[in-house]
């Protein structure tokens, strides 16, 4: 009798553990940029195309709130996010990266490098940022930016000194052409060297 009770208790604990874990983790997975959740992928970049609109996926809202961000308005800006390079490796501050490509047409843009851990209390202080007001384009109109924690010649986006990094590219008042090409990576992310 007692053995049966213990057996049922074990089953209940397993049931609760599996159910809660699976439900919570699957929600996090979807909000992390799953295509099934409405996220679009462009190379290493992930974008929630309808963020802030009435057609927005509920996972898009969850994505931003879990990162302690206010969801951007699709009407105002397109926001691309990358935590990996084009080869699928995590972006880390000990490496040097080259970002390059033709930027889509828009009014202006800003590219920021944040610590991946948003729980870091100084995250806002450690951000590196570069914008269309600061850069020099290549003669062919392409953009080339070095991403590194130490100063680099040319266009340089400083990275936080330690840990994993997330890039956020915001395109303001992007034109219809940019909105039609969300599946084209705005910039390639190529790892050049690591310490």
């Amino acid at each position: 009798m007692a053995g049966g009770g213990v057996n049922s208790l074990v089953k209940f604990v397993l049931f609760a553990f599996f159910g809660v874990s699976a439900g919570y983790l699957s929600a996090l997975y979807m909000a992390d940029g799953a295509r099934l959740a409405g996220a679009a992928h462009a190379g290493a970049w992930v974008i929630w195309p309808d963020s802030g609109s009435s057609a927005a996926s509920p996972y898009s809202r969850l994505h931003y709130l879990l990162k302690e961000q206010l969801p951007p308005s699709h009407f105002d800006r397109l926001e691309f996010e990358a935590s990996r390079d084009d080869a699928g490796r995590s972006l880390v501050s000990s490496c040097l990266y080259r970002l390059e490509g033709p930027m889509p047409k828009m009014r202006w843009w800003a590219l920021s490098a944040y610590p991946a851990n948003t729980a870091d209390g100084d995250a806002a202080v450690k951000v590196g940022e570069i914008s269309s007001h600061d850069v020099i384009y290549e003669p062919d109109g392409h953009l080339r930016i070095s991403l590194a924690s130490r100063a680099q010649p040319g266009n340089w986006l400083p990275m936080p000194a330690q840990g994993n990094v997330v890039l956020v590219l915001r395109l303001f008042n992007a034109g219809p052409a940019a909105r039609d090409q969300l599946h084209n990576a705005p910039l390639r992310i190529i790892r050049e060297a690591c310490l």
């Binding site: 089953k11 397993l14 049931f15 609760a16 599996f18 159910g19 809660v20 699976a22 439900g23 919570y24 699957s26 929600a27 996090l28 979807m30 909000a31 509920p58 996972y59 809202r61 969850l62 709130l65 879990l66 302690e68």
Partner: peptide, 26 residues
Amino acid sequence: FWIVASILLAIIVHVSVVLFAARVKM
């Protein structure tokens, strides 16, 4: 029974996180 119950619980938790996260964060 336990497998079905676990899947149902997972669905309930998943939907709750998606729908009510804003009620915690905002």
